[in-house]
Write a protein that binds this DNA or RNA. Structure first.
Lengths: 210, 210
DNA sequence: CCTTTCAGTGAACAGCCGTACACTGAAACC
DNA sequence: GGTTTCAGTGTACGGCTGTTCACTGAAAGG
């Protein structure tokens, strides 16, 4: 009559799995994935420590699952950037606005990537590095559609994409770090990001045409 | 006759303190400062765990001391950049070369900053953020001496310095991550860094003069 | 020379860590 | 309806964690 929860067995398993991922993400947010213990996570979920192994073989594997989910958020953002860029002028302003919106919506995912990229378990670090490289390539194809970039080499597009990604990761970090409910601080960050993107775009164009 | 080691009492204390810092830096390099335990460190130094407290009140305090030493390395680099930039043409190439050299020489310090900036204990994170801000300001005054920047606002100089620091931190990370004894890979990183700095400098100049 | 200082010692503590193993009981299957 | 599957349970283990406290013995100071 009264099940411990709704749904079929595999639905319930999936829900527990997601609860573990959410709990780990939340705990890791305080310091880093390296400080997340299996026991903390399971306690927060409300299951016994050993039940963890029904879902993941190790914390590393859990970390890789978090990488997947975090990059899903990142790609969602890229889709939004493409959609809004097609509509109207002000590509740079629009893109930064989308970035800001997504960082707020999926704050923990963006912070996870920024953080574990340099500090996580080696496997996780490697996975993030790889995903970021793919992401850069995707961005490079978008940049190729900008005006004044038709004659560029693939190399130069990749270099520019790398710089843009670096600057945007840094912008995301700044937004995350900023105190909440301070629209003035955030507007300043946006202004900096927009200016930096302009420097990059205009600079790349002028440098190439020489 | 045979002392446990040379030197006066406070000299020996200073040497032990440095040994603790070195050991912590080495252990943190594997994952992060958050995974460094007092017992690991003291074991590596060859002293008993409780002796740690004769030098630091906590791991956090040790972390702050590491921030100091790491930024000393960073400032040493900036001094070298200034010295070589004054001599000759090719400011960008010269500066990147200096960066590469210093990253190799003080690899663990650079990695420590890049890593703990986002993942360390909150106090350490905050200290690094603050030091990086000072560093950016220092760099901004240097950038003001470049050609075509006389008319710039302080704001724009700061924004540009921020972008340069971001790009150089990213370059340092790439060098550290690169497999050793692969001059081809490293040359590619240098080429990317130089191109990116050119994009920034040329772009900033052109954008401003409009 | 006698006293004070203090870096390093060593035992003991309570608490958390990952993981092993045998188990239960309800859902899924035939 | 009887059997199988399997998410979650409960106990137990050795090992590592930070921190306490009283101590030793050599260097520093009067």
């Amino acid at each position: 009559m009264s099940s411990p929860s709704e749904g079929s067995r595999q639905e319930r398993k999936q829900r527990t799995r997601q609860a573990i991922l959410d709990a780990a993400l939340e705990i890791a947010d305080e310091e880093s994935l390296a400080t997340v213990s299996l026991r903390q996570v399971t306690k927060q979920v409300g299951i016994v420590p050993t039940a963890f192994y029904r879902h993941f073989a190790s914390i590393d594997e859990l970390g890789l699952a978090l990488v997947d989910q975090s990059f899903a958020s990142l790609r969602e953002m890229l889709r939004d950037v493409r959609r809004t860029s097609a509509e109207l002028r002000g590509v740079i302003e629009g893109s930064v606005a989308v970035l800001v919106e997504h960082v707020h919506q999926r704050r923990e995912h963006f912070r996870f990537i920024a953080r574990e990229r340099t500090s996580g378990p080696p496997v996780v670090r490697e996975a993030i590095r790889h995903e970021l490289e793919l992401f850069e390539r995707e961005l490079a194809t978008d940049l190729a559609r900008l005006p004044n970039t038709q004659a560029w080499s693939g190399d130069d597009l990749r270099i520019m994409a790398n710089l843009v990604v670096t600057a945007m990761v840094s912008t995301a970090e700044a937004i995350i770090l900023a105190p909440p409910n301070r629209p003035d601080v955030e507007r300043e960050i946006v202004r900096t990001a927009v200016t930096q993107l302009r420097m990059i775009v205009v600079g790349a164009a002028n440098w190439r045409s020489r």
